[in-house]
Design a protein around this nucleic acid. Structure first.
Length: 415
DNA sequence: AAATCGGGGCG
DNA sequence: CGCCCAGATTT
């Protein structure tokens, strides 16, 4: 890092200076180098490009759906979701007409659920404002919820053959190395350079194929930890390769530190007409997991979890999911009992079973204990969002990942 | 500019 | 475990 650059003085001479200082491969941006790179990448793509389900057509709906699913999500994780989703919602009209619950249910497990809510909203807008046809225009596309600069460029180029630039995880890495970009790729200045390069390099003929080819090159050759420069069709243009910096670039900011969290979930159980029911609630708008069903949860202290009557802990599932239970007539902490009663109206008795889970998600490492409790009394009508549910009914409702794990565990105990 | 989103897979 | 993933949106 050069401190002298932290506060630019003024003007245009400055930007040329920054470029010379941070980009070691300015020659890459000559017309002949640009054409050579485009040709090499496309030639490589014909042979080595990935065959992916959303590449079978140029249907903007399928491309849009795949791009939303792929945001911060690996290709391997997306494929089965994409297939199921297309089978259930084959076009934008069907999706727009679907219930949000059904959309969330099919999204369950994929994470970042605001994507599913935005997807559903955007489908409604495409139908109501564009007559069911996606606009063939990156600027218009970017106005739809969930579509940012990258996704707009991807749809515009893949579906409509428009020469729109893209920068995402693969191209960010590839372009940073080609340019020999020394700055943090996440910084505003780094992003500006990457997008400027993306714009300079995207061809007017076959822009969609080109954009997909550079993504595949990033995914298969210009990989994060051990780039296969020996197999790279464009290493002659690569600033990082020339300087032996392929393992140092791209430069990224330090990762967020992991936060440990203890969480307590409480699941009241009652028997109604010979069938077991469990008290759950639907997450409110604005909350995490909005619209999804979940057990009552609260963040707590590790000591509280340690003090619970949860004996015989056993691990299952690669030491991530533990299960156990105790039939002791023990109670939850009074404060927790009060909160459950205050929010749901249900009055609890003893703990009858418990489940311990330990998992990592985003920047959190969570230790979760879920307890099943007997019910002393339930109001005639529950507050808004709360419901007694039989386990079978939850198969069709959207739950968070851990909510589903808890329900699966309850189901297993029944049998 | 920085935080949030709360899932998964791989070495 | 650490690291990364076809990012967008909110604060």
């Amino acid at each position: 890092m050069s401190p002298s650059r932290s506060k630019p003085a003024v003007g245009c001479a400055e930007s040329a200076e920054v470029l010379a200082e941070t980009v070691v491969a300015p020659a890459l941006q000559t017309p002949s180098a640009t054409r050579g790179l485009q040709r090499q990448v496309l030639k490589w793509y014909e042979v080595a490009g990935r065959r992916l389900p959303w590449r079978q057509s140029q249907d903007p709906y399928r491309i849009w759906l795949s791009e939303i699913m792929l945001q911060q999500t690996t290709v391997a994780a997306v494929i089965p979701y994409f297939e199921r989703f297309i089978a259930a919602f084959p076009d934008v009209n069907v999706l727009a007409a679907a219930a949000l619950d059904d959309v969330l249910r099919l999204w369950e497990g994929l994470g970042y659920y605001s994507r599913a809510r935005n997807l559903h909203r955007a489908a409604g807008l495409v139908v109501s404002q564009y007559g069911g046809q996606f606009p063939a225009d990156a600027v218009q596309l970017q106005k739809l919820p969930g579509i940012g600069r990258y996704t707009a460029g991807a749809i515009a180029s893949f579906a409509f053959d428009l020469p729109a630039p893209i920068v995402e995880a693969n191209t960010e890495r590839l372009y940073a190395r080609l340019l020999g970009l020394q700055q943090d790729v996440r910084s505003a200045a780094g992003q500006k350079q990457l997008w400027a390069f993306a714009e300079s390099i995207v061809p007017t003929t076959r822009p969609g194929d080109f954009n997909q080819s550079v993504m595949d090159l990033g995914a298969r050759i210009c990989t994060p930890t051990s780039p296969r420069c020996g197999d790279c069709p464009v290493r002659e243009y690569c600033g990082a390769f020339r300087l032996g910096l392929q393992h140092e670039l791209p430069k990224k900011p330090p990762r967020a530190t992991v936060t440990a969290i203890a969480e307590l979930a409480v699941i009241p159980m009652r028997v109604q007409q010979g069938r077991r029911q469990f008290l759950l609630r639907r997450r409110a708008a604005g909350e995490r997991w909005a619209g999804m069903w979940d057990a009552y949860r609260e963040e707590t202290q590790p000591e509280i979890l340690d003090a619970l009557p949860v004996s015989d802990f056993q691990t299952q599932h690669r030491a991530r999911v533990g299960s156990l239970f105790s039939a002791d007539e023990d109670q939850l902490p009074a404060a927790t009992l009060e909160r459950v009663t205050q929010q749901s109206g249900v009055v609890l008795e003893a703990i009858t079973a418990a489940l311990q889970l330990s998992y990592s998600v985003t920047r959190f490492k969570v230790r979760l204990t879920a307890v099943v409790c007997k019910v002393q009394q339930s109001p005639r009508t529950l507050p808004d969002g709360w419901r007694w549910q039989a386990l079978e009914d939850l198969a069709e409702l959207p739950l968070s990942k851990t909510g589903r794990q808890i329900i699966d565990w309850l189901q297993q105990r029944e049998n």
